[in-house]
Design a protein around this nucleic acid. Structure first.
Lengths: 214, 214
DNA sequence: ACAAAAGTGTTGCAAGTACACCCATGC
DNA sequence: GCATGGGTGTACTTGCAACACTTTTGT
């Protein structure tokens, strides 16, 4: 055992939890009630316990802020600049989470538009920028965007999600062709209800496992 | 200060150092001289010091094994499964390094072909597989492959490097068209010397900063 | 002169982009 | 019947894939 030969850094996890609702890409922030950066907004985070898997820690930390059942979570990057926390050396393993909008009930006000964030505590602004880049680039080749949607959805809902995340509008016909060509969707045979106009076919992911949940 | 409220995990860094020479993609391994996994091969690694940037730690650890001046290094992933080290909880921030072949002098025997590795200590086999995937996918959109080459090189040398990393042969004309279309090279006007046949034009990267060195 | 690597152009195909119209429903 | 979003087909352009021959040098 070499556990006490020299001091170890603290290991924390911070979570960049994204969701798409009300027409914006949003991120979950909490308000700090301690120094440093007291009363500033920050990413939810916490210590990784000594026998806890890091990803489980990220999931736990997120659940402490808001009860979320099915969310996709993946590791983003590890930040360890010795100056990033003025108190002591903190190494933070940051995760990115994708939260379906229908799970956001009580605490909508904590979800802020990614494109209009205030100054956040620590290096959290740059962390979120990195996460946003990663999210955007994963849209092309992964099914990560479906993590924002319920289990069944219309093609227009997917397109809107892509548009909000990418920050640009997409051609309807080309988008549909591309998404269908990927062979990841199947029709449910059902139609959307309650819309003011023509109902849309509802689709779902071909494999339930296409998205990993934790 | 919350430094001693509870035990912190140990934080280490391991480095997957790649190089391309003698026709293979190779990785730097060391032989462990302590339990566990005594006398097995393993990735070079070591503790992150309490005031040391993680990336600097990775660079230092690598230099302890073999003196390397200009290498490209980037963070790969952080492994923190509580069972991965039988002694105590260890969280390892793993980096990937790209080492030019001309810097490998004395210790060639420690660089092993990635495609014929023995059983390594800890989870190091799977770490290297992940690094190899990342390296391959970065060939498309980055200049990372030039980290294997000297400052000037021929088009055939680049192509050979790509082929070795990807594990497949590439069409000469298409490769050249694509690499030139990326506008990242400029001719030096010089020609390769000493080849048994027609000399080839030497190129270099347009921006010296296209590759970040540390 | 010949062996070996350097170097170059064109054609076919697939994927992406741009664009215009009909359909089903609620009001 | 009209406004609104759902849904489809086609032409153009661009990038990728496949393929054969000429050039320059050392021996």
């Amino acid at each position: 055992m070499y556990q006490y030969e020299f001091p170890h850094p603290a290991v924390t996890t911070d979570v960049v939890a994204f969701s798409v609702f009300d027409g914006d890409l949003r991120v979950l922030l909490i308000r700090r009630n301690e120094a440093p950066f007291k009363s500033d907004f920050a990413l939810p985070g916490g210590f990784v316990r000594i026998d806890e898997d890091i990803q489980n820690a990220a999931h736990r930390v997120l659940n402490e802020k808001t009860p979320l059942e099915k969310i996709y979570i993946e590791q983003l990057y590890t930040f360890g600049n010795p100056e990033r926390d003025p108190r002591e050396r903190v190494i933070s393993v940051v995760y990115m989470a994708i939260v379906p909008f229908y799970q956001i009930l009580d605490i909508k006000e904590l979800w802020q538009n990614v494109n209009h964030l205030p100054e956040l505590a620590f290096d959290h602004n740059s962390i979120i920028m990195l996460a946003q880049q990663r999210l955007r680039s994963k849209l092309r080749y992964s099914t990560i965007a479906f993590g924002f949607l319920p289990q069944t959805f219309t093609l227009t809902e997917i397109q809107k999600t892509y548009e909000v995340v990418l920050g640009e509008s997409l051609e309807k016909r080309n988008f549909r062709k591309q998404i269908m060509a990927r062979n990841i969707l199947k029709s449910t045979g059902e139609y959307s209800q309650g819309g003011a106009h023509r109902p849309a076919l509802l689709y779902k992911l071909l494999d339930d496992d296409t998205l990993q949940y934790w």
